[in-house]
């Protein structure tokens, strides 16, 4: 995997159109390369401009990534006078932390909750933005379409604290719905604190926040479908549903596969703030996901080695899933997230 392939990670929707070979200009430049000294004299301002950002990434991204090795330590923050000192003085215990972790039923509860939520949302959330994009695309009036888009994109810009607050005020025990039900002599029904329906609640919140935003990428893909295809199909007698099935959906397939791969790679993360905000209301049994597990079992009680082990487990599984899903996509003849060089 090379850098140019990785660029495509950030360019969803481009996967069908990107050139499969690097542009010839770069090849030419590579061949008659000037000596390093000359190039350095030419390029040093560029390096200087990149340096601050790169430095920041190294400090706040790559050093912590390497710091995951404390998963193999009985890390003791008081073993030295700094984090580095403590790290050097802490005892290496091999897979001890992982053994503790895998024996902890609470950890498996968290894994199970996370996977159930991922699966549930894959079925009940993932298709909705596609449906919305197709619906919006079918509107003839540009004005209505623009208006609806402006409104449904908006909640994407709200924080999770706000989204949860809105849900509490509308559907919670003291919210508008419960208020109305009480006034009509009905038993109020509080979805905000019910662990059994928590999975529906978090999905509903996710849909409210990101349904519109999620449709954008599909709208872009729909705009890329050649209208002549529709015309030709209609001339051959295909009705609107057959056109949807034989033209629209195949046109969306590459982007759907791409997003499914990304989602699969993230199967162990379902978001964080949303869960930590509601964990107290519905209880640990239903709301503990892997990320909140790390927070409550490692950061709060300062079990650093254990927390790093859980984090590392999540990262390794996630990376493996992305690579596996990408392989599978190649096998199925799709572009996937990145290409082999």
């Amino acid at each position: 995997m090379s850098t140019s392939d990785l660029v495509d990670v950030a360019a969803p929707g481009d996967d069908r159109r990107a050139p499969a070979t690097p542009p010839p200009r770069r090849v030419a430049r590579r061949r008659n390369r000037a000596p390093l000294r000359v190039r350095l004299r030419r390029d040093w301002p560029l390096l200087l401009m990149t340096a601050p950002g790169a430095l920041l990434l190294i400090v706040f991204h790559y050093v912590p990534t390497l710091g995951n090795v404390i998963a193999f330590q009985d890390y003791n923050p008081f073993a030295g006078d700094s984090v580095l000192g403590s790290f050097l003085n802490s005892e290496w215990i091999g897979f001890g932390n992982f053994e503790t972790l895998f024996k902890d039923p609470a950890f498996w509860d968290a894994v199970r909750n996370t996977l159930s939520i991922t699966l549930f949302q894959l079925v009940f959330f993932f298709p909705l933005p596609i449906a919305l994009a197709i619906l919006l695309n079918s509107l003839l009036s540009g004005r209505v379409r623009g208006l609806v888009q402006s409104v449904v994109y908006l909640p994407h810009f709200f924080s999770w604290v706000l989204v949860v607050t809105f849900f509490v005020q509308m559907l919670g025990g003291a919210g508008l719905l419960a208020q109305e039900m009480r006034q009509h002599g009905l038993e109020p029904w509080n979805i905000m604190t019910n662990p059994d329906t928590f999975i529906v609640l978090v999905t509903a919140e996710g849909v409210w926040k990101d349904l519109g935003w999620g449709a954008i990428v599909f709208l872009a893909a729909l705009a890329g479908i050649d209208p002549n295809l529709y015309e030709a199909a209609a001339a051959d007698g295909a009705g609107r549903w057959r056109r949807l099935w034989h033209i629209t959906l195949p046109g969306l397939r590459p982007i759907v596969v791409l997003l499914l791969i990304l989602r699969l790679g993230d199967a162990l993360s379902v978001g964080f703030e949303q869960y930590i905000l509601q964990r107290d209301a519905v209880g640990r049994q239903a709301a503990e996901v892997l990320d909140t597990f790390v927070y409550y079992q490692a950061i709060v009680p300062q079990q650093w080695g254990l927390g790093a082990a859980a984090g590392l487990f999540k990262a390794v599984v996630g990376l493996t899933l992305v690579i596996a899903a990408n392989k599978l996509a190649h096998r199925l003849g799709e572009q996937g997230v990145y290409r082999k060089s």
Partner: peptide, 14 residues
């Protein structure tokens, strides 16, 4: 950084 995330614990320590 798209593919590799540092965990919560090491980030916190750094």
């Amino acid at each position: 950084t798209f593919l590799i995330y540092p965990g919560l614990v090491p980030s916190y320590l750094v």
